[in-house]
Design a protein around this nucleic acid. Structure first.
Length: 260
DNA sequence: CTGGGGAGGGGGCCC
DNA sequence: GGGGCCCCCTCCCCA
């Protein structure tokens, strides 16, 4: 049966899941694992999986309408220097050529207050600077820019640190997994599997307390909250707990936390 | 109005 | 690198 929310919403819809409610923080910096690693070059769309890309084209760092790469930096390096919004700023010293493969972006800043404070060396390219601020500026331009997310989706403004993550995301636009029964399309096979259960009636996830069965594990998890005396989501104002965040939001919007 | 179920989305991790 | 899976989440609907 068609339901309004089953229809793929326009990509410009302002649906923005609020992960910050439970998660610690949204991490905008690149995880350490990526630091110092050369970012891959995004291949041409035509050599990628048609299911993942057709008809979407991919914005690469080289075709983004931002500041161009320096002439001495080959586009094959794939480094998103053009993504750095600090690239227009001046910096101390000229950058020496990088050796990409084995450099590590370790925080090896020489102590500015130490004995050897006269020399500030970049751990990535070994470039030395006479001032600490000079090194900081260099790192902003040279190192931090390399760790920026570099793969951008054309259909939305999301950026990813890896091509694989981008390709996974693009599937949410192309929806390659189609239900043979009703024709509804999904981004991933397991989503389609879950959808097919709505046709077959299969409910493989059972509640150990009441034996109620669910087709979706997440829904079982939400159901398990109803058996708990202390719910997972608590109002900061009145300490009342709720089984779902959405219920907590409704509670907060209803005015509980207004009178504080 | 509230609480809960149904259905689905998206990112991350692991193999 | 890709698929499977997990987790967390939202939205809609209904009792």
């Amino acid at each position: 049966m068609p339901r309004s929310f089953l229809v793929k919403k326009h990509i410009n819809s302002a649906k923005k899941p609020n992960y910050s409610e439970l998660e610690s923080t949204t991490v905008f910096f690149t995880p350490h694992i990526y630091r110092g690693l050369p970012l891959p070059v995004i291949p041409q769309a035509e050599i990628l999986s048609p299911a993942a890309y057709s008809p979407i084209t991919v914005w690469t760092t080289s075709n983004l309408p931002l500041s161009p790469l320096p002439s001495d930096l080959s586009p094959i390096s794939g480094y998103p220097s053009s993504l750095s919004d600090t690239s227009s700023k001046d910096h101390s010293g000229s950058e020496s050529p990088r050796s990409d493969e084995d450099e590590q972006m370790l925080p090896k800043l020489t102590d500015p207050h130490g004995v050897e404070a006269e020399k500030f060396q970049c751990s990535l390219c070994s470039k030395s600077y006479s001032t600490y601020s000079g090194l900081l500026k260099h790192k902003q331009l040279h190192c931090d820019a390399q760790t920026r997310k570099s793969f951008s989706c054309k259909y939305c403004e999301k950026e990813y640190v890896s091509l694989g993550a981008l390709k996974m995301h693009i599937r949410t636009h192309t929806l390659p997994c189609v239900c043979k029964i009703c024709g509804k399309a999904f981004s991933r096979p397991w989503l389609l599997q879950g959808h097919i259960r709505t046709h077959t009636g299969e409910k493989p996830f059972s509640c150990p307390h009441c034996n109620r069965a669910f087709a979706d594990r997440s829904n079982l998890r939400a159901h398990l909250q109803t058996h708990s005396d202390v719910k997972k989501y608590q109002c900061k104002n009145c300490s009342k707990t709720f089984s779902r965040m959405s219920l907590l939001h409704k509670h907060e919007e209803s005015g509980c936390c207004v009178a504080h």
